[in-house]
Amino acid sequence: MLVVENHSLDEMSSEMPYTFGLAQRYGYATASTALTHPSLPNYLAIAGGDRFGVTDDDPPASHAASGPSVFGQALSLGRTATLYAEGMPGTCALEDGGDRYAVRHNPWAYFVDERSLCRQHDLPLDTFAADVADGNLPNAGMVIPNTCHDAHDPDCTLGDADRWMRAHLAPVLAGPDFASGHLAVVVTADEDDGSQGNTVLTAVLHPSQRGHVVGTPLSPYSLTRLYEQVLGASLLGEAATAPDMAAAFGLRVRRRTG
């Protein structure tokens, strides 16, 4: 999963031609909506099936999310998980810094029960290219651009984000994990800019998708559910009743356990 910041479906489809071209080639949803503003509650919802009462963008020192994340679930099942964060200084950084790294966009850093796992598997983006080339992408993965390349900062545009997506997605789509059919790539946004009722582009890139346009209403909890279906994990919180993204796109995934 790769996440853009604060832009609507209409904005992303018109101003990110490479990314939206992939969405049209493979598949995308027309009724995928974020839960709220600002960013952090949406990221926590994706990672943990709950907003944990968070209504702001404050750092982990202010918000301790208890219980498992989808990344911790993966590791507890003997599978793999990695969050790749561009510009992050070190692993599982709990404060802003580095090259436009924003901790509010790194949900795993908030899950206090998994802090030791986060320190091992929440990594700077530098490791991503090698994992792509080696066919070593994780069972549960998330890629977080810095605040320029996710089009958040005012001096950066969706064009900048689109060029960044091309640079990082093209190798993935040409790589062994995608060719195997075992990898689905989701591109989405955490929230819109307030212009489209929080409707965002959510694209699913997988060899089974061929111009698939899905009208099923989806939410960040649908993304939680998709992670857990891929893992064969129990459904956390609101994911248990969220619209089924795998079914909407016709993706074949593991049976749920527990």
Rank of each mutant, 00 (worst) to 15 (best):
V4Q: 11
H7A: 13
S14V: 02
S14P: 00
Y18A: 01
Y18C: 02
G21T: 08
G21H: 06
Q24T: 12
G27C: 10
Y28H: 15
T33Y: 08
T33N: 15
H37M: 07
H37V: 06
P38V: 07
L40M: 09
N42L: 09
Y43A: 07
G48Y: 00
D50W: 00
F52P: 00
P59E: 09
A61Q: 13
S62P: 01
S62H: 14
H63L: 13
A64Y: 03
Q73E: 14
A74K: 03
S76F: 00
G78L: 08
T82V: 15
T82N: 12
M88P: 07
G90I: 14
C92N: 14
D96N: 14
D99L: 09
Y101H: 02
A102K: 00
A102L: 00
P107M: 08
W108P: 05
W108V: 15
W108Q: 14
F111Q: 01
E114W: 02
S116L: 11
L117P: 00
L117N: 09
Q120G: 05
L125M: 12
T127G: 14
D131K: 13
G135D: 07
P138S: 09
I144C: 01
D150F: 05
D150V: 08
D150P: 04
H152A: 02
D153K: 03
P154V: 06
D155H: 10
T157Y: 04
G159Q: 11
H168S: 08
L169R: 13
G181W: 10
G181K: 12
H182F: 00
V186E: 05
D190L: 08
D192P: 13
D192E: 14
S195G: 11
T199L: 12
H212R: 10
G215C: 01
P220K: 08
L231G: 04
L235D: 01
M245Q: 11
A247K: 12
A248H: 00
R254Y: 02
R256T: 15
G258F: 01
G258E: 12
